[in-house]
Nucleic acid binder design. Structure first.
Lengths: 186, 186
DNA sequence: AAATATACTTACTAATAAGTAAATTCCAAA
DNA sequence: TTTGGAATTTACTTATTAGTAAGTATATTT
């Protein structure tokens, strides 16, 4: 794998998560990396190919985290906390998550990014409801209603939590983070 | 008030809520309204002036709703439901709310839009926590923790609920809507 | 009737966008 | 030592962007 290619993807993801998909250009990337505009097009012929790769990589990272958690036999509470730590870190770095960044731009994105984003969102919600369901059965969690609905509520708390923290200029994510966990305590 | 000016603001808001701030242009507005680009600049010299006006109008509409609810002596449950209906309607119209649309673009917006957006977000959260606090004291609602934190959770559910519904291509907002209300039932 | 203000259009500018074709540099294998 | 491919730059195109200066038609006021 090319180092330049990796740097482009890393910077592209940063730009999407700080400024949004439609607010960054290949120039932003090339000037920051000290290369020319055309060099970015060499690795990613179109902006949509770059966007699609970034979302795919994000999903791979999520899958790696899931596998890691399973292999270490973490209980549901720890698994949820590990997942939530990703958002705590995002907030500290003043970044949104990729889903919360690209979601509002969805109607301006091509089918390839859209479907990857949908796939990733469905996968996260599926994983989260599974954790919640198992945790509920084991008595680790306590909540009303269907685990699927609960997963949607918790996930939307995290996605918009980052956005609202940015608007409100809150550097800590504690309020939402703690409230979600308190809600789930038996 | 000029009809053209109102049409520009209405269309501008629609564009922000469907495609995002950085994805719409004065051309989009002028061609749709059958006027020239410069005519839009006549009413709103800069895009930031248009954006700021749109956010201010949104906040005015919110304040009008609040006053209306208070004058009619609605109980807390009905007040919350009325507020949530705005989001149900947004979802039906395939639009995000203005806060969820502009939040991710915040770093690309000028100070004027930013501060208006912050003011509006703070005002909504303040109102919502007040409703929750009063409803809790009257026994209309039941929830754990501070009303302020609860307001943040519920509001983030609505903001990201619209975004996730768009990504997942869900035309109904029922799951989130119902789960929020069920959670608050005594 | 003359002056003024409102609501635009015409006709532009300068900057930036994504994207491309062709040339070039550089390194490794044959 | 030549050949070939990978990684880039050069130099460009076409389209779109926000924004502006100057002009015009229409209505309103003086």
């Amino acid at each position: 794998m090319s180092v330049t290619r990796e740097k482009i993807m890393e910077l592209g993801e940063d730009l999407i998560r700080t400024r949004g998909y439609n607010a960054f250009s290949y120039q932003d990337i090339s000037s920051e990396l000290g290369i020319k505009n055309a060099a970015v097009h060499y690795y990613f012929p179109s902006k949509e190919s770059l966007g699609t790769s970034i979302v795919k990589t994000n999903m791979q990272r999520f899958e790696e985290m899931v596998e890691n958690l399973q292999s270490r036999n973490f209980d549901e509470w720890s698994q949820l906390e590990t997942f939530m730590k990703i958002y705590v870190k995002s907030n500290r770095e003043l970044k949104l998550c990729i889903i919360g960044s690209l979601g509002p731009d969805l109607n301006t994105l091509n089918e390839s990014i859209r479907s990857e984003l949908k796939k990733m969102t469905e996968r996260i919600l599926q994983w989260l409801s599974c954790i919640l369901k198992n945790g509920l059965e084991k008595g680790i969690f306590s909540f009303k209603g269907d685990p699927k609905d609960r997963a949607l509520l918790i996930f939307s708390n995290m996605v918009a939590g980052l956005q609202l923290a940015r608007i409100l200029e809150k550097t800590d994510f504690k309020a939402i983070h703690q409230a979600i966990l308190d809600d789930l305590k038996p």
